[in-house]
Each structure stands twice: as structure tokens, then as C-alpha cells.
Design a protein around this nucleic acid. Structure first.
Lengths: 133, 133
DNA sequence: GTGGTTGCAAAGGTTTTGCATGTGC
DNA sequence: GCACATGCAAAACCTTTGCAACCAC
């Protein structure tokens, strides 16, 4: 899945690790801030470029946060859809077996060739839900 | 569902009608261009403000187009999810009965209180699919 | 050595905001 | 009349790009 001609550089590793360590959705800027704590010279543009590369390679996915900002999460090849907690921004993988029936029924009931789908749920995760009450 | 204190103005009606007439996803700028053909003084900022109001009131929904641009579609209260053709930008409503099982199984299989979901499918509609071959 | 990558700053484009004026209700 | 809405332009904002230096392979 990795694009041909893509190189492994220290910066890309740092970005990938920082995103994976976060275990939640971060905007490029938020990730950049975290990284800068330990790597002050790593530029914001590099973060954007690394994130874009990760998305293309299926190692991260991007979705829209309120306010027209992109947020990114690390993901593996088998989980592409997420439950995003709107309070703590923590992200859980959605069980893909739950999604599969939907994908096939969309193909059956509509004359539409699905290329990709945005299937992201927003709400409160277990812990935030308890805390909210 | 309409927010308290929201007024009906000629401009909002124009924006709502233009969006409904389009029957496809439009960015704020595209909508502004179309509107300006007949209403040259209606400003872009007003279009943004009207669209935002419509989204809040459930009369339109917003999603992300490639290149970090928001696109908007008119929608009614019962259809909130869409099939978006990435070629002609035409939007079909997704049959909600197809979606309902997914929503309930997410609630069952994950400890997560779903507030709202982004369920949008991107691909080729029937006509574009034929044309593509 | 070659071609992808980085860092910086500057540019680009979208969206928001300030403010004086206008207008539903 | 009051609060909200509009229009214009400026500002803010996120994101991309240009370019010289750099470095992985």
C-alpha cells in the first residue's frame, strides 16, 4: 500500500509515532505543537506532508472537525471507521463487521458505485458519558 | 427545530431556494455565484451565514469535499445521509431504513452514546457510471 | 548522484468577523 | 424600538507551495 518512491525519514517516523501515541484525533497544528516540545525544528508543513502521506498509505485517516478543521487519527488497514468522542477527542475503532452489511445494502438498493464512505460517529465515549451525568 | 430568534429574510429565502433548486452539493462560493446572477448585491458572507443557519436547523447538511472545502446540500428532516457523486456532484438521499440497523448495532456493540453520525458515500452515480465506461 | 524531503516564509484560498446600516417582528 | 441580519472589506485561519539546502537510497 505504500507508494513507490516514498522515503522513510526521521521526521516521518516522528509524526507517525506522535499520532499513534496520541490515540485520539488531532489536528495538524495540535500534533505539531506536541512534536515541537521534543523536536523544535520540525516544521508545520512537514507535519502536513507527513500526514497526507500517511492518509494515502492507509496508515491514518482524516475527518472533519467542527470549524472546518481536519483531524487525523492513526489507524490500521482493517479499521477505517471511527467513533469520535466529541468531549475528549478519543477515538475508538468501529467494528467493521458491523459496517459491512450497510455497504452491501447500499450497493443493492441504490444504483451507485461506492468508492469510499465516511462512516464516523460522534458522541460521548463510555467514560465521558459517566462523567457527564 | 428552528432556532429561537431566527428571522426570515429575503436573503435567507433566496439562499434556501437556490440550494434546493440545485439538487446537488455546492460549495458556498458556487452557490454565491449562482445567486449573484439574479441578485448581484447578495454577499458571500450572507451566503455563509445563511447556510450555517440552515445546517443548524436541519434544513441542509454539510460535508467535506476534496481540498478542504465544505459543500452543502438541501435536505429534509428525514434524510440526513447521502450518496454523493464525485463526478457530477449530484446527491441522492440514502434510504434511512438501510441505516437504522447500523445505528442500533453501534449502540449495542460499543459503549458509546451516538450523538450524530457522518454517513456519506462517495462514488459514481448511475449515469456517470455508464458514461465512465 | 538523483530525486524525494525538509524548513522556512510567503502565498493561496476559504471562512469568519467588525462595523455601520438596514429591517423583521 | 430592539435585536437580529446584511454588505462590504478586512482579518483570521488553515493549508499549500516555492525554493534552496539536505539527505535517504
Amino acid at each position: 500500500m505504500v507508494s513507490r518512491g516514498r522515503r522513510s525519514t526521521p521526521q516521518r517516523v516522528i509524526v507517525a509515532e506522535a499520532l499513534a501515541a496520541a490515540r485520539r484525533a488531532l489536528s495538524a497544528q495540535e500534533l505539531h505543537e506536541r512534536i515541537n516540545a521534543g523536536h523544535p525544528t520540525l516544521g508545520l508543513a512537514t507535519v502536513y506532508r507527513a500526514l497526507e502521506a500517511q492518509v494515502q498509505d492507509g496508515m491514518a485517516s482524516r475527518f472533519e472537525r467542527d470549524g472546518h478543521v481536519s483531524a487525523y487519527v492513526a489507524c490500521d488497514a482493517t479499521h477505517h471507521h471511527h467513533l469520535v468522542c466529541t468531549r475528549c477527542q478519543r477515538v475508538e475503532d468501529l467494528d467493521e463487521t458491523v459496517v459491512a452489511p450497510l455497504l452491501s445494502s447500499v450497493g443493492r438498493t441504490h444504483d451507485f458505485q461506492v468508492d469510499h464512505a465516511a462512516l464516523d460517529f460522534y458522541g460521548l465515549c463510555g467514560s465521558c458519558r459517566k462523567r457527564a451525568r
